[in-house]
Amino acid sequence: MKIKHSIIIAEKQCKDMLKNKTVLIQFLLFPLINIIMEHSVTFDGLPEHFFTKMFAVMYLGMAPLTTMAAILSEEKEKNTLRALLLSNITSIEYLVGVGGYIWFVCMLGGSIFFITGNYKGYEGIVFLGSMAVGILISLLIGAVIGTWSKNQMSATSFTVPIMMVFSFLPMLSMFNETIRKVAKITYTQQISLFLNQTEPIKINIENVIVILFNILIVSILFRYAYKKYGFT
């Protein structure tokens, strides 16, 4: 694997994304809503930085997933991915280039939550670490959808329900016990529980196991999708 190739792909992605408003808005939407809500909504009994924690989880479940799926499916539909693969680039170099770039941009968005949540020291590191892992899993899910889909239209039909489940389950589980039980198996809920601890944040074995299990499942799905459909 040549890192130089991945950097070239990331550079291409950066230029392309700046001209792609539909993708660009994914990165700005939740951080902006969060800033507005944090500064405009206050009432008695509202937990500290409630909106930051809620929107951060929504953001990591939504932005990387939809972006990765959209980019991959668009490249397949327009045959640009085929052109890349016929230019001496490997699938892994491509994935690292695109995925690495999206991960980086999402982490920039995550840093806005970091600032509005007023995280410091150990809590700050744990918050960013959770975001990093959550974004990575969402990227993998997006890659599975993108690989599975022939074109952008079919990718969207997969992306919307999956993204809704992962993004909104943590919020909905606040209001319903049954949803809470089901949501426990998702990485977004575990990250949400992790970030919403009232005591100083402690790494819980259940959080780690569920997150690792999610990574395992998504990796298996990606391997299957890649073997079956490939990138072209």
Partner: peptide, 30 residues
């Protein structure tokens, strides 16, 4: 693929990028 050039029927160009940036991308890879 360093020794082969391929022009596909569906051209495989990045529509949002400029002509120069399209060629720069493939020049870098080759």
């Amino acid at each position: 693929y360093h020794k082969i050039g391929i022009m596909m029927e569906c051209l495989g160009l990045y529509e949002r990028l400029s002509c120069y940036d399209n060629l720069k991308l493939f020049a870098g890879l080759n």
